[in-house]
Design a protein around this nucleic acid. Structure first.
Length: 202
DNA sequence: CGATAGATCGGCT
DNA sequence: GCCGATCTATCGC
């Protein structure tokens, strides 16, 4: 089925910008259900769009300041759940879309659609498909019910502005697999190839 | 304490 | 394109 090499604790002990890029192509499973990560976004304490902006701690974001390798799950717009991977120094990666790979039937049932393109295309949708909710907030990504497998093979990665935010719109901190049909939204035709420019744009 | 905005989504116009 | 669902944090009175 899938490449067997698991991610290590050290993997997450880097800044979210770096982790967000390297996660593209990684397989994420929750209780054996999931697929390849094709879209991510990065956030950190110096970023006005981040829940951890200025290191301000609340009941909701406390997990962001605990340690790398934890799941930060929060409720969005009162209805949907969003899954983040906590990285170094209060930074985190929002998991925005998966290419469905494992246990398709379970995801189709939970999402009430058979359309593979709509199963995990968006942070709220993928949480519904993988049954991620607030009970997993603070859980380790290196233990059950999570499983993360390194990517195998090449992936062409592009970057662009993040989706659905009003602050720091110009930062190119959304990353994805170029032309994947499983993205929450396509990248613009001229999207910047990752690796040809500095990642950090404040 | 009330109002409002927000890392969203699905249904409708 | 707009709207409503309705949780969390913040800001204003």
């Amino acid at each position: 089925m899938i490449g067997r090499a698991r991610l290590s604790e050290r993997y997450f002990a880097r800044h979210a910008n770096e982790v967000a890029v390297s996660l593209i192509g990684v397989v994420l499973l929750v209780n054996g259900v999931g697929g390849r990560i094709v879209e991510t976004e990065s956030y950190d304490p110096e970023d006005p769009a981040s829940h951890s902006y200025l290191y301000r701690r609340t009941a909701r974001n406390a997990v962001m300041f605990e340690r790398p390798g934890l799941a930060y799950v929060y409720r969005s717009y009162g209805l949907h759940w969003c899954l983040n991977f906590v990285c170094r120094g209060g930074s985190a990666v929002l998991i925005r879309a998966l290419e469905p790979v494992e246990a398709l039937a379970a995801m189709q049932r939970r999402r009430a659609t058979k359309d593979l393109r709509k199963l995990c295309a968006g942070p709220g949708r993928l949480c519904q498909a993988l049954a991620v909710d607030g009970s997993l907030n603070g859980a380790s990504l290196l233990a059950k019910p999570f499983a993360l497998y390194r990517r195998h093979g090449d992936v062409e990665i592009v970057s662009g502005p993040r989706i659905g935010i009003s602050k720091a719109r110009e930062a190119l901190r959304r990353f994805g697999e170029k032309d994947s049909p499983f993205l929450s939204r396509r990248f613009s035709p001229g999207a910047q190839a990752v690796g040809r420019q500095p990642l950090l744009r404040k």
